[in-house]
């Protein structure tokens, strides 16, 4: 992997990343680099550290050693600036059930000083007819924490009741305001075919506009030209050598 630090083509990169969760080493010596308009797909077995890597990229988790850089500047130096330039979708949908769909979106957009993108984002993820409905009436899709079952294949015919409406709302949040870096942790999980297609379209549009995107997934994604990173390759051995 070409990792010249001053290379202007590289927007977002990580170098010699070591990660530890609790008392367990997750990965070590991990490297990545993305240019503007690139998609990086993270793969690897469960527990290999895809989510941890995304959290390190977001600045939520500090690596034990190594550094993540945006255009050559360490993200740990200015966390707020890094947070302002990224959208993160984690395992949890970050949906407030007592608020309506539109209120949820409006709040996140207001935090970023954005007002106009909400209707477009609702349309993009097929939520426009539900905008005034409290989010607790949306379908949740499968519970990830309890059963990480494989997500539905992309070309499934539309179901009677669209699955994963809350997940769609979580994704509409990132489409509602602009940020150059998207970090998506298994975004298509719990979605039906239509939802998956909407995610792919959103990622393609984001990258066509010069954005970067890192996606973790357990399934094949329909994203031409995406780079792949097998996180499992960097698995660290036992933490303690007796």
């Amino acid at each position: 992997m070409n990792r010249a630090r001053s290379d202007p083509a590289i927007a977002f990169s990580g170098r010699a990343l070591d990660c530890m969760r609790g008392d367990r080493w997750v990965f070590s010596g991990l490297e990545f680099a993305l240019g503007a308009g690139d998609v990086l797909v993270l793969s690897g077995p469960n527990g290999s550290g895809k989510s941890s890597l995304l959290r390190i990229m977001a600045g939520l988790l500090a690596p034990v050693s190594g550094a993540v850089q945006w255009h050559g500047a360490d993200i740990a130096d200015d966390r707020d600036a890094h947070a302002a330039r990224l959208h993160y979708v984690g395992h949890l949908d970050a949906v407030k059930l007592a608020l309506t769909v539109a209120e949820n979106l409006r709040f996140w957009a207001a935090l970023r000083g954005e007002r106009d993108g909400i209707d477009r984002a609702l349309d993009e993820f097929g939520l426009a007819p539900l905008a005034d409905l409290p989010a607790r009436f949306l379908s949740a899709g499968q519970r990830r924490r309890l059963a990480p079952a494989p997500p539905p294949p992309p070309a499934r015919p539309p179901r009677f009741r669209p699955a994963g409406q809350r997940r769609r709302l979580a994704l509409a949040r990132i489409a509602a305001s602009a940020a150059p870096l998207w970090l998506l942790d298994e975004p298509t999980v719990a979605l039906d075919g239509e939802g998956v297609a909407a995610v792919h379209a959103a990622i393609r549009a984001h990258c066509a506009g010069g954005g970067c995107c890192v996606v973790s997934t357990n399934t094949a994604l329909d994203l031409a030209g995406a780079a792949a990173l097998d996180v499992g390759r960097y698995a660290a051995g036992p933490a303690v050598r007796p």
Binding site: R24, G47, D230, R233, A235, A239, V240
Partner: peptide
């Protein structure tokens, strides 16, 4: 932890 995870990493490794 290492004991619990070591065989899993070996077995599921690609």
């Amino acid at each position: 932890h290492a004991r619990a995870h070591a065989p899993a990493v070996g077995g599921m490794d690609t």
